[in-house]
């Protein structure tokens, strides 16, 4: 591992991995990136699940369960700059639609109301419990840069990474900001 390369970790909370897919759409820029950055962990390109100390932490997805809270906090604790990718991470996205109803009602509707007789609400012992509300990242941890979009286009993701490589916190202006 080269000493001077900034290290990056990415992870996905509750989301569709669309932002990560969009990231892969940067095509050959990936090759360039590999020269410039050291990926410590990223679930779409490598099979490492632990987060170690990195320079840049990138998160996609909404915080909807206890595991998300834990991963988000772990990422925050282990990175210098935290970047939110996509509408879900930035604002909560489509998942916040569940906030219209109490979480109990939603579980009831999904696992009992719309299912066969044998199904039951999952035990929080086995599956991480849902948080009361689905939230964007900054309602739980501090966020340094926002790259919204559903998903943000490959160009925008690339722009964000380039800015970070230049040592700046990316801020999308009116020509680039879309959600």
């Amino acid at each position: 591992m080269a000493e001077d390369k900034p290290t990056v970790a990415t992870a996905c909370m509750c989301g569709c991995s669309g932002c990560h897919m969009s990231f892969l759409d940067v095509d050959e820029f990936v090759k360039e990136l590999a020269e410039l950055l050291e990926f410590q962990s990223s679930h779409v390109i490598m099979d490492i699940k632990d987060i170690e100390e990195v320079d840049i932490g990138i998160l996609e997805g909404t915080i909807t369960n206890e595991e998300n809270v834990e991963v988000a906090k772990e990422m925050r604790d282990n990175c210098e700059i935290l970047v939110a990718w996509g509408d879900c991470a930035c604002f909560g996205g489509i998942m916040t639609m569940r906030n219209f109803e109490p979480v109990e009602d939603i579980l009831e509707e999904c696992y009992i109301g719309k299912s066969d007789d044998e199904s039951e609400i999952p035990d929080p012992e086995h599956v991480p419990a849902l948080t009361e509300k689905a939230r964007g990242l900054d309602e739980v941890i501090e966020v340094d840069a926002y790259i919204p979009g559903c998903p943000p286009s490959a160009d925008i993701i690339r722009y964000g990474l380039e800015k970070l490589l230049e040592g700046e916190i990316p801020k999308l202006d009116k020509d680039k900001l879309r959600y």
């Binding site: 930035c90 604002f91 916040t96 009116k174 900001l177």
Partner: peptide, 15 residues
């Protein structure tokens, strides 16, 4: 929203 560069929110949704 875009023109004013609003990329994060300080106030919660009211639903």
């Amino acid at each position: 929203m875009w023109e004013n560069g609003i990329d994060y929110f300080e106030h919660p949704r009211l639903f």
